[in-house]
Design a protein around this nucleic acid. Structure first.
Lengths: 253, 253
DNA sequence: GAGTGGTCTAGACCACCAG
DNA sequence: TGGTGGTCTAGACCACTCC
């Protein structure tokens, strides 16, 4: 059996991350079927061309993503019910990416791109003192045409290479990709989870009755260095009739 | 400087977990002050008596818990704003534990303990075919006397050593502790996050207006072996006016 | 007893940041 | 230029499960 080796051509990502992607490919392509036992870790590590700790880091993540299952003394298995119509919180994905991960076609409607000057309301909303203009993007994301979440995003202009760097932002662009191209790679986010009753805007956007409970995710995004300074603030309102949020929680490290 | 060494007296936990606890103690006790730089990793590992990878696993968790901050080429620092009035999703805590972690006194009111026979409604609620009676516990948890969350829990009787093992359950008991004593150690949980409008019961429990949005956490808990079979199902309704939920999300492994 | 995952270590090498 | 965190490896040993 050849071809299991982790691809080295991909952009510079941690080896464990590339290993994870390779394993997911093996599952999705059907090389590894639901219920199958994976080769033992030392053998699998050799086939993939990585060390055992690296392999184990990748497997650990796939276990929390419910793709694999480990049984001590027995083996590692592909979970029977792999795909979920649910959006996991442990991985930070761009909204487009998360739609595509569910196997659907990502789109957007009602795109608005503008520059805004900070005021007291915006500072309260972002929970932060603001010192210059921001780029504001607003759009409603769709999955196979259905409206699944509404997204508002703010980027301080002074973190961009040029003030007009993102003015050509379009419907289907990934903000994460555009920021990466601008030298700002998003690494982590702090998210607050807030329940909301649909107001007239949310109600109209998702065609829901007024007062229908929805979830708002307020997210402060940080680059690699953490640096105390967020580079992107976003608010995502999920259409709870269409998308479910979930998290895998661990009791210990 | 002595006494930094990781305590070995504690129950059998992973060394990285014990290292994490030791570091938290050093921060909370003031030995490490907000803004302080920690010793370099090799030196810190030596002081704590663990290897560098073990230390790094502990630090990584404290970074996601926003206690520490790492700057490549510079050092690892204690974050200025350590404590939060917020409940993180990445760590699975018993409801009592999470209240105490916020520095408050945990209590409970309206305790109900009963055995229930499964029916179609319960099977739909638990999303699972049920094959025997279950223990049902219902109580409203308080923090310094304020009602912060309402909690309903179900445990299949056939996973307990004896049918009556938990019949003496009391207000302030920790279900996790009682289950551990019964040989069932909870390791992970899958949580679904659902927005809800306060119904008359929730409204009365938390003294909120009807229709106030709250968050429901539906959680399936698993033991160490994963084993496909959950051992505890719980529903937590958070009083969103008193508790905030948050999660730290990572873009890569 | 044989084989599996679980844990932990020692240490090499690299990329980044400061002086 | 020197020290820091970032990455990755090889391998030892243990605990568990099954035959």
């Amino acid at each position: 059996m050849v071809g299991w080796a982790v691809q080295d051509k991909r952009e510079r990502l941690p080896l464990a991350e590339r290993t994870l992607v390779r394993l997911k490919q093996l599952v999705h392509s059907g090389v590894l079927q639901p219920g199958d036992r994976l080769p033992a870790e030392p053998e699998l590590a050799a086939r993939l061309g990585v060390s055992r700790p690296t392999l184990r880091a990748a497997i650990a993540q796939l276990v929390t993503e419910m793709v694999l299952e480990r049984r001590r003394g027995v083996g590692t298995f592909v979970r029977p019910h792999a795909p979920r119509f649910s959006h996991g919180l442990e991985r930070l994905l761009g909204t487009g990416e998360s739609v595509e991960q569910l196997g659907m076609r990502a789109g957007a409607v009602n795109l608005l791109v503008e520059h805004v000057e900070p005021d007291a309301d915006l500072e309260a909303r972002l929970e932060c003192r603001l010192e210059g203009a921001l780029l504001h993007i607003s759009r409603t994301r769709t999955a196979d045409g259905q409206r699944v979440l509404h997204c508002e995003e703010w980027v301080p202009l002074n973190v961009l290479p040029t003030t007009r760097a993102l003015d050509d932002f379009s419907d289907s662009d990934s903000l994460y990709d555009r920021l990466r191209d601008a030298g700002l790679e998003i690494a982590t986010a702090m998210s607050k989870i807030i329940p909301l009753a649909a107001d007239p805007f949310v109600s109209a956007t998702f065609d829901l009755a007024r007062g229908t409970p929805v979830v708002l995710l307020r997210q402060w995004h940080y680059g690699r260095g953490s640096r105390d300074r967020w580079v992107l603030y976003s608010e995502n309102i999920y259409n709870s009739t269409a998308v479910e949020l979930h998290a895998v929680r661990r009791r210990e490290l």
